[in-house]
Amino acid sequence: MKTINITVKVWRQENAVAKGHFEDYKLTEIDTDMSFLEMLDVLNEGLTLSGELPLAFDSDCREGICGMCGAVVNGEPHGPVKAVTICQLHMRSFTDGQTLVIESWRSKAFPVIKDIVVDRSAFDRIMMAGGYISVKTGTTTDANANLITSDIAEEAMDAAQCIGCGACVAACPNASAMLFVGAKVSHLSLLPQGKIECVERVRKMVTQMDKEGFGSCSNEYECSVSCPKEINISHIARMNRKMIKATIKSVVG
């Protein structure tokens, strides 16, 4: 068993209105086979035993599929390993004696609730604005009733991989949510069930996105690099294309 000693510099903030600050903690003999979140569990155990408040952080599945976890580690959303969420990151990715700066996602649209836990309900409201189809889907249809070519199915699936963790917003220099919204728009508009409301959906979702206070995409492409599901920026391009259609339609009527 290999162990390392590390220092964590983590963002502590009592509640949504309090002013936050960084706190340093030394952790010794951290098993390198531990996951990042298990390391935080160890930290919390120590904090609890010494009578301090444990660090609040989000997690649920710890399998990289739910999108609940997330933190910026040394300037990298979800840490230094490509295409993984922070729950799937292991301590072997770090070296002995290293200092890890752990921060929450930073965005006006994602206010901090406590420590590194942020409120991502802005994403939910964007979904509520148009991220659905209004037809009754009924029971599962016959597998071949709706013919979809394999490349379209693949692309829709790629977009559908988005777990809504918010790393794209965290990574974007403008705290823009375009990759998230683009993925949702793509996912629905590529498939026959979602095609019908496509134009309206784009308009509604983009309007909500703007309302939430996300920044505007300036094509920096940082989002895609930090995305644990490697969602491609071509989904943003598709949304931009659909937005032109939506605007012409709303102007011409």
Binding site: K9, V72, G75, V101, E103, A171
Partner: peptide, 9 residues
């Protein structure tokens, strides 16, 4: 951010 994400892309 204390450590700004970026310079990757």
């Amino acid at each position: 951010y204390k450590k700004t994400p970026s310079t990757k892309k």
